[in-house]
């Protein structure tokens, strides 16, 4: 530990490391922008974003069906997980004894720690057959199970811990002061939750949803394994789709041999990065008002 005495040399390293971290977002954006430059030259931005024409050999890269799949899977996943998280958070903070939360917290944390590849395997083992054998036939549809729905179900489970943890923090911080006042005025517990707590928590709830959205949007492997990977505009949620991250992951090997293909995939990464950064930015702005209290 004697080397710590000489701070001048040490500080060079400390500030260098900090500098690397500060430079990271800029490097990521500039690097990906630099690599996607050639595809941006060859195609117009509106073609890239809004055309479904995907013909790498002809240099045509329309991302619309991929973006569409990504948005669809993400929205569907949120539709499943947000109500579950909301109810769970309200129950755990307003109704249940605090022991419950102590028991549930490890479950949430373990769920958050499970790698996405494991969720993917679970999707293949359980969700895909479930859809193919039971859910789809119920609607009179025949499918192999690899579908938008399968992707969304797997994704919804993956984002539950993220959304739930944020909601728990927010409800905990609000419920300390507010409800007594409302209950003192003669409101019932459910009325208090509905009119006071949920209203107060609204920006926080929105931000937790946006956080979940950005997680879901960038999730790669688990979705890729169950979503079917067919580039199309799916007509129903039982049809396969092909989200952006899956496109990038699936084509990393071949992309070097086709001109502009790698550039197109880097552009796809850039879209992902920008969207996720914007979501995160928005969510943090919304949540910042709570952070002074938490």
């Amino acid at each position: 530990m004697r080397f710590l005495k000489n701070e001048k040399v040490l500080n060079v390293f400390l500030y260098l490391f900090l500098g690397i971290i500060l430079a990271m977002p800029v490097l990521l954006i500039v690097g990906l922008l630099f690599k996607s430059e050639s595809v941006l030259h060859a195609n117009s931005l509106s073609d890239l974003l809004f055309s479904t024409e995907w013909k790498p050999f002809q240099g045509k890269f329309g991302f619309y069906s991929y973006i569409y799949s990504s948005v669809l899977v993400t929205m569907l996943a949120l539709l499943i997980s947000v109500p579950i998280c909301l109810f769970a958070a309200i129950y755990l903070t307003q109704y249940a004894k605090s022991v419950y939360l102590k028991v549930i917290q490890p479950v949430i944390d373990i769920l958050a720690g499970i790698p996405s590849i494991i969720f993917g395997v679970w999707g293949i083992l359980v969700i895909v057959p479930l859809i193919s054998h039971y859910v789809a036939p119920f609607f009179g549809i025949e499918t192999a199970g690899y579908s938008i729905l399968a992707g969304a179900v797997v994704l919804s489970v993956m984002i539950i811990p993220f959304i739930l943890n944020i909601l728990l923090e927010i409800f905990k911080s609000i419920s300390k002061e507010l409800p007594q006042a409302s209950i003192a005025l003669g409101a019932t517990k459910w009325q208090t939750i509905k009119y006071v707590i949920l209203r107060k928590a609204f920006p926080g709830i929105v931000s937790s949803v946006v956080f979940g959205m950005s997680r879901a949007f960038g999730e790669t492997i688990a979705v890729l394994m169950v979503v079917g990977n067919v580039a199309q505009i799916p007509k129903s949620i039982f049809e396969p789709g092909y989200p952006l991250p899956a496109l990038i992951a699936n084509n990393y090997g071949e992309m070097l041999s086709i001109p502009n293909y790698d550039s197109a995939l880097m552009f796809a990464s850039l879209i992902l990065l920008v969207i996720v950064l914007l979501f995160n930015l928005a969510a943090r702005m919304l949540i910042s008002r709570y952070e002074t209290k938490i």
Binding site: I21, L28, L32, G218, I248, S269
Partner: peptide, 26 residues
């Protein structure tokens, strides 16, 4: 500000790091 930036980086999907790393390698 640094904390905010780190939180943003935390949210960046790993596939983006992978793609970025790959292009740096090339």
């Amino acid at each position: 500000g640094v904390r905010f930036l780190l939180d943003l980086l935390w949210g960046v999907p790993s596939i983006v790091y992978g793609a970025f790393g790959f292009s740096v390698m090339i």
